[in-house]
Design a protein around this nucleic acid. Structure first.
Lengths: 198, 198, 198, 198
DNA sequence: CATGAATGAGTCTTCATTCAT
DNA sequence: AATGAATGAAGACTCATTCAT
């Protein structure tokens, strides 16, 4: 946990730039190296601060990385188009883009690998990135259901997993980065959930 | 890589039991601890041998773990039923069971996390576990296509990812272990790929 | 050494309460933890000030602890009874009480242990506590000599060490806190130094 | 605690020279620097081994120092002369000599200072050095009592502390190393405990 | 004056790897 | 072959001290 200062603002204020630089460096290095291989020395150097400055803010390495993950935000302006299919594809594409940009599969791997040891990491990753993205998808699917494009009794959580899942499965199969994966996933789900009378 | 013995079979032969015990211990610990946290001391203790005995067989830690992953086998009795849906569900269920039994998500996470550093691990995991499983699924899908239950122009690789993907996506969302995921995935895919005239 | 202020009394004067709180905290922690284990952070916290406030007054940790020891005072109301034996026993008992109250053996140990590194500590301990106590004892012994209860040629310094010594020796033997040690020491010394013709 | 090996003598045997060199270096540095200031690096360098070699034998710094103190032996051939006074003086002189040779007061100080934190040190110092020396003195005093040179009802433990005590008291007073302290202590005790009818 | 931030030097401990038996 | 000893490189964390507010 980040140390919270309770006293008033006496003394030199803590540099917000350093806070940010440390967290950014930590997150990048976490993705690039994994939990254990990433060292505080690397973070300090990358952030341009001393190791002690890191320890002043976060007591332990685990605390720092937890904070770094907690700072993750999905930079997702929700999509605007009126067309369900376009909206879903946009969300999935933005997802893939984000994952690629931040070396996300390695970060996901780190959280999965550390789950037996530091389950907070995966929990935070879920809360900050996975679940918000899923919420976007489910909202769109609900709109689709209301519009009669999706069966009324469809399990939308399962549908959400069906939309996102191919990304993971493709990556595991070594066929990540297929240009058409998002369209294919959306089309399959929409076809599979089409109302019987449509 | 396993050290290749250049001398002929002079002297005491290397114990095959020890080979196996070491590899099994290494794989378990790899899943439980991750690459860096797992130590050779732990492997040695778990396997009942000395650390030197490990180094005698594999030059480095990376070599050992590569060998351990290379020894992974999918325990896949190919499915027998004549029904496509049943076959697909069986394959998926066996997949989930296997993953849970060997703490597979942590192992997958380790390989993903180590990809920037030791890409062989993920490559081996793919070759030994992911691709064989996908081959089973694709074979079943091909049967389905030949039987007219799946559109002729369907992309079976994408379909395979659609079958397996929900497992990963569910796990990432914290909703792994749903009892019906396999049926739901199969039904969605079969519905989505149904020939138009069916 | 305490920093000497070169500027005259301009600005806010240094708080005397803080001075005292710091020194008291330092002394207690010195006894409880020893020189190296005691940290300035602990002192600051215990005294309710910031670390910088300490450094503002004393340049280094050694300076602070030197000042703390220099502030030690023997709270010794000199004894009043007219009886030599009673006076000596009282002084010794007060000595033992004081040592126990301030965790004195640990403090003594710290000064002894630091002697190779910071000899000022032991020197101050001597000057402020050991020698004043010895002076009390020697005065009493001199009275005894003048009263003819002690041989004229007795070495009173040695006698003083014979009075105090059993306390240390007992402690080292793990038999500190014996209720009768003071009486026994006084009786032995008085018997051993009795004039021949008495 | 020293790690005990239970398996038979397979593999390279542990070097006894290194054991000894490490313990000797540890003890010297403990006396010279105190517990906390002494570093394992110093010990390793002084003993001519690597730090890891130390950790192979003793898990922690505390274990090492405990072992070093446990290895302390009083090199005391018990004295032979038939004369009680001579025997006692010899024992005390040997005590003083030993203390000076091994920088004993600093070592004693370290054990006292560490008592709140690591009480084993003082306990070991007692058991290995203080109590054996006291046993020698008490044996001699018992002989004296049997020979009628000491009162039958004398408290020999207190007498032992009276013999050793002046050494500590002198040191604390800054008057250690007086040439005649042993004789003075012995004479005082023998005079003080002389049978009344003698 | 007083405070909190920032830092550099230092310490114990771990671990993959190499050596000697 | 197999073992245990020995090691060098590294890493998290601490702390006295100096800076900026």
């Amino acid at each position: 946990m980040r140390d919270t200062k309770t006293t008033k603002g006496a003394g030199r204020p803590r540099s917000a730039e350093k806070d940010e630089a440390i967290l950014r460096a930590a997150l990048e290095l976490l993705a690039a190296q994994g939990y254990v291989r990433m060292t505080l020395d690397q973070v300090a150097t990358a952030a341009g601060v001393s190791k002690s400055t890191i320890h002043l803010r976060w007591k332990t390495k685990a605390d720092l990385l937890t904070a770094a993950l907690a700072g993750l935000r999905m930079a997702d302006a929700p999509p605007a188009s009126g067309d369900i299919r376009t909206d879903l594809v946009d969300i999935l594409r933005d997802f893939a883009t984000t994952v690629e940009r931040v070396n996300g599969m390695a970060l996901i791997g780190t959280c999965l690998a550390e789950e037996p040891h530091t389950p907070e990491l995966l929990a935070l990753l879920r809360e900050r990135t996975v679940l918000p993205r899923r919420a976007l998808l489910r909202d769109a699917l609900e709109q689709a259901r209301e519009a009669g494009q999706v069966r009324a009794d469809a399990d939308l959580e399962a549908a959400t997993s069906a939309l996102l899942g191919p990304f993971y499965a493709d990556y595991m199969a070594g066929r990540g980065g297929q240009p058409e994966w998002a369209e294919q996933a959306v089309d399959l789900v929409l076809a599979g959930l089409r109302p019987l009378n449509a």
